[in-house]
Every structure is written in structure tokens, then in C-alpha cells.
Simulated scan of single mutants.
Amino acid sequence: MYIKKILTAIALLGLVVAAYFAYFIYNAMFKPNTAFNNDSAYIYIPTNATYENVREQLLPLLKDIDKFDALANQKKYVSNIKAGRYIIKKGMNNNDIINSIRSNNIPIKISFNNQETIEKLAGRIGSQIEADSLQLVQAMFDESFLSKNNFNKATALGMYIPNSYEFFWNTSADQFRDRMLKEFKRFWTDARLEKAKSINLSPSEVIALASIVYEESKKADEQPIIAGVYLNRLKVGMPLQADPTIKFAAYQLPENKNTVIKRVLNIHKEIDSPYNTYKYAGLPPGLITMPDVSAIDAVLNYQKHGYYYFAADANKLGYHKFAKTLAQHNVNAREYQRYLSTQGIRK
């Protein structure tokens, strides 16, 4: 009888322990454990992060970090941290959270255009992925990479085709650069390469010319006409005489840093620079800004015409007047210069 009571007591104790264990497991695994009011929150786990790094980010997001710790240890997450950007949805339990931050790296969409330099592009990208701007600049300007892929420091920016791309947040600088090389090669289809060949330009030269066209006009419907003017000049050996290249050369000089040149003057045309297309015939060494795809395609699909000159149109701002003769061009140019003077723009 005494033994029977002992066995009954042990059985009851076992049931209590089992019930407590089941309750603990329920709380640890299946009870909602988020403490934020928004629909979701993101955590960013750096490369080579420790569990403590993850825990620090989770602390303000969870109601009970201790129960999360217990389950993370049981599921061996503490020794299997994965870098990336992860989502935690409101009402998630610890089991769901661990599954999410273990295997559901969420990509981000990166868009860029109109970046004037590699440094500015790196700054824009570095604010969106784990790699910082310094690491990106070093990767983008890596001499062995550039040489291997037929680029140099003057043409490097042309490898980055403006568009929207998906990346994982924990993308490294080298990974970003290498992916953009693949996108560059994908952009240069056989059809585009054939069109470049037909005008005796390499892809980098097309982009260099497109950067000038883009700086001359943001109007996509006019860009093929401007591209045609410059290609006409190249065909006959006439200097491009492109004002945007003069501004680019001027901005490289210390005295013009942090200034805005609104009017190209004769003094600017005397700057001794390979980007001075008034002094030196042919294309400059590289692009002067990142052109839109519309400008690249405008060069490849330039409009055939007899124009060799153009000047900004004072009566239709943003557009230009085109001329076949220097005499007519001078008339158009003087009209625009008078407009600038009436606006008080003298430099």
C-alpha cells in the first residue's frame, strides 16, 4: 500500500513536470514574443556577427529575450549566425523568428542614375548595403580588375548601367562590382554591339559620347539629334567643341571646386585638359557623368541629318536650335547669349 502511494506520487509529479515542460516549450516556441507595434521590423546582421550582436538588436523587439535565448540554444542558432537583412513580423513566436533570421535573407532593391563620379556612386550604394563607400571605391578602382575587363579609371564609371537591381544587404564591395560587370555585359547585347561597331566606337566610347549628349539635353526625344551632330563632327575630324566637357575640365581645377558654371567663357576654353574638346579633337578619355540609358541608345540610334551645330533655344528652354552652317549657328548662339544676359547670367 505504501509503495503504491509512492508510485502514485511519482506519477503525479511526473505529470506536473511534463505539464510544466509542455508549458515552457509552448512559451518558448509558440507564444507570440514581439514587443513592437508596427507590422514588421528588420534586423541587419553583419558578416562575422556573433549571437551577442544579434541579441543586441533583438532585445528591444522582443518581450522575453530569455526564452528566445533558451530556444536559440536548443536549435543551435547561437553557433550558426547568417549575415543578412531579416524580417520579424508582429506576433511572431520565437520559433518563427529563429526560422526567419536563419534562412530568410530579404533582398533590397537598389536604384541609381546620374552619379557624376565613382566616389558619388560608392556613397549612394554604401548607404544601402553592408560594404561602405571606401571599400566600394577601392573595389571599383582596382587596377587589375579594370585592366582585365578593358576599363581604366577614366572609363570605370561607364561599367555601371543606371537601373534598379536586387542585392542582398550583406553584399561585399567586390560582389557588388562583379555583379555590375555582369549587368554591363548583359546590357551590351549583340544588337547594341553591332550598332557600336557600325559607328566605329567601342562600348566605352559610346558611353563617353552618351555622357556628353546627356549633359547637353535631358530630353530623350532630342538626344538622337544631338548625338547625330557629334557623330557628324567625328566623321569629318571636327572638334566636338562640347561645353559640358569644358565644364568638366574646369571643375577639376581647385579654383572651381564647389562652384556652378552656368556660362562657358573664353577663359574656360583655354584650359589645358584632354577633356577640353575645343583644344583636342576626338572623344575625351572617358565619360563626364553617368548617362541615362536613353542617351546611350540615342548614340547607338542617332538621327542621320546634316547638322553640325546646335545652340540652346531661348524660346523653348531645355531644347536646342540646330544649324547646318556656322553662319546660322552664330545667329542662334547670339540669340541665346542675349537671353543669358537678360537673366543676369554672366558666368
Rank of each mutant, 00 (worst) to 15 (best):
Q223A: 09
W169P: 02
Q223I: 12
I226T: 04
I161E: 07
L181F: 07
K218I: 10
I161L: 07
E183V: 13
A227P: 04
K185P: 00
K219N: 14
R179Q: 13
I226W: 04
Q241L: 11
Q241A: 13
E166Y: 13
R233W: 05
L234I: 10
G228E: 11
T245P: 00
G228F: 04
K235W: 02
W188I: 10
I199E: 05
L193P: 00
K219F: 05
A196G: 12
V206W: 04
S164Q: 14
E183I: 15
S164D: 13
Y230M: 11
L201R: 11
Y214D: 11
V206N: 00
L201H: 06
Q223V: 07
L181T: 01
L231A: 05
I199R: 13
Y214H: 15
F187L: 12
D221S: 14
L231Q: 08
G237L: 12
A208G: 01
Q175M: 14
R177H: 09
A196C: 12
R192A: 05
I226H: 04
A196E: 05
V229A: 07
D221V: 14
I161S: 05
L209G: 03
R179G: 00
A227I: 07
Q175W: 01
I212H: 02
W188T: 07
R233M: 03
A220E: 14
K218V: 13
S202R: 10
F167I: 10
I207A: 00
Q223W: 11
D221R: 09
N232G: 08
P244I: 14
S204F: 03
Q175H: 06
K218E: 05
S204L: 13
F187H: 07
Y230S: 05
A173Y: 11
A196L: 12
T171I: 15
P224D: 08
W188M: 10
Y214C: 07
R192W: 04
E205K: 15
K235F: 06
M238W: 09
V229Y: 06
F176A: 12
S164A: 15
N170V: 06
M238D: 06
G237C: 11
R233Q: 11
N170H: 12
A210K: 09
A220D: 12
R192C: 01
N163C: 02
N170Y: 02
W188D: 07
N200C: 02
F184M: 06
D221Y: 06
A242R: 10
I225A: 03
Y160G: 00
A220F: 05
S172G: 14
F176C: 09
Y165V: 08
